[in-house]
């Protein structure tokens, strides 16, 4: 390989953090993965097996697009369900398509792989101390982004001037790209937190609160859920979501232990199914008006969780709306169902 160019499949706004980390640790070109579009989805599903879950198709599509842009090293994450096995099939598919590249998987079978060994094998020029330092900054950055986005989801629906939240959010992300040090990052965060709190909002007396639970990729990548959160905000619904990268990486371990002590379920159910069941219970107990459950179609752990979520919601008499997102789900269909759900919630409130 003459010159190394790194790329990665993207998810939500974390692209900022990942790009920041990679561009500072590796002394080589980093290629921005192109934003997911309908074309990405089309390419992805063309080369994927038929009944694999949707994230496989999206990430494969992004990989092909960034390989076309000239990348030759690609990072892929992995998780607890079949996500951990994606990389092997994706590598084979791409090799069969004639691409010359390396695919590096970070987590396999729920276990972290030995990164140092892999970096050595692949001859990636990296700086050890820098990697640790910028790794810390990136972790902090992700935490800040999650905190701000949580605030945005809850308050965006009350904004007086349209798009004021989104604009400021974009400005913050742009500024975070130029972070110089840990302290600088903290300054940025506090500055924008103040600015966000200053945005004019008009909170009505009665408003609808909805909790979103479900499969992580569909929740966090706005393209795959048809900007569901934005749609809800436009309707004037305040949204609560638990799953974000901070939760998955740092909080989940402790939460799951706590959850298991409550004896609603006896065992862990794979991926985030258990968390979602308990979050549903939390939402029901805290007077949320409705719950939206989202997943990519054929997501095995979530399918098993659905009947239990349904049962809990039935006990507390809270309505649930199930979405199963696929390439072929139409945006209008999603919108119609969402509007009907909203109307129902509104009528219940009266």
């Amino acid at each position: 390989m003459s010159s190394i160019k790194i790329s990665y499949p993207l998810m939500g706004n974390y692209e900022v953090a990942i790009f920041y980390l990679l561009s500072h640790t590796f002394k080589c070109d980093i290629i921005h993965p192109p934003k997911i579009t309908t074309r990405t989805a089309e390419i992805g599903s063309k080369y994927s097996p038929d009944f694999v879950c949707a994230p496989f198709k999206y990430t494969l599509g992004t990989m092909i697009e960034s390989l076309d842009k000239g990348a030759n090293v690609i990072f892929q994450m992995g998780g607890g369900c079949r996500y951990g096995y994606y990389h092997e099939l994706q590598r084979k598919i791409l090799e069969d398509l004639g691409y010359d590249f390396k695919l590096i998987n970070l987590i396999s079978g729920g276990k972290q792989v030995n990164l140092l060994k892999i970096f050595k094998e692949t001859n990636l020029p990296y700086h050890k101390i820098k990697a640790i330092y910028y790794g810390l900054i990136t972790i902090k950055m992700v935490k800040y982004i999650d905190k701000i986005e949580d605030y945005i989801r809850i308050h965006r629906c009350f904004e007086v001037k349209k798009n004021s939240f989104n604009q400021l959010h974009q400005e913050m992300l742009n500024e975070m790209k130029k972070t110089k040090s840990l302290f600088h990052l903290k300054l940025i965060y506090h500055k924008y937190r103040r600015l966000f709190k200053k945005i004019k909002i008009k909170k009505p007396k009665n408003y609808i609160k909805v909790g979103i639970v479900g499969e992580l990729y569909t929740l966090m990548e706005p393209f795959t859920n048809y900007q569901m959160e934005q749609l809800l905000s436009d309707m004037g619904v305040s949204v609560k979501r638990f799953t974000d990268v901070t939760y998955l990486l740092f909080k989940k371990k402790y939460k799951v232990k706590k959850f298991l002590k409550q004896h609603l379920l006896k065992y862990r159910m794979g991926a985030d199914a258990l968390d979602n069941i308990y979050h549903t219970k939390y939402l029901c107990e805290h007077n949320y008006d409705g719950i939206i459950h989202m997943k990519a179609s054929f997501c095995t752990p979530e399918i098993a969780a659905m009947p239990i979520i349904n049962q809990i919601a039935h006990e507390y008499k809270v309505p649930v709306l199930f979405f199963s997102m696929d390439m072929n789900t139409s945006e209008t269909g999603v919108k119609t169902r969402l509007e009907a759900f909203y109307d129902m919630l509104e009528m219940r409130q009266k």
Binding site: A304, P307, I308
Partner: peptide, 11 residues
């Protein structure tokens, strides 16, 4: 084993 097998009992 399969992810579904983890959930059978609770379900």
């Amino acid at each position: 084993t399969c992810t579904n097998f983890l959930a059978i009992y609770d379900l």
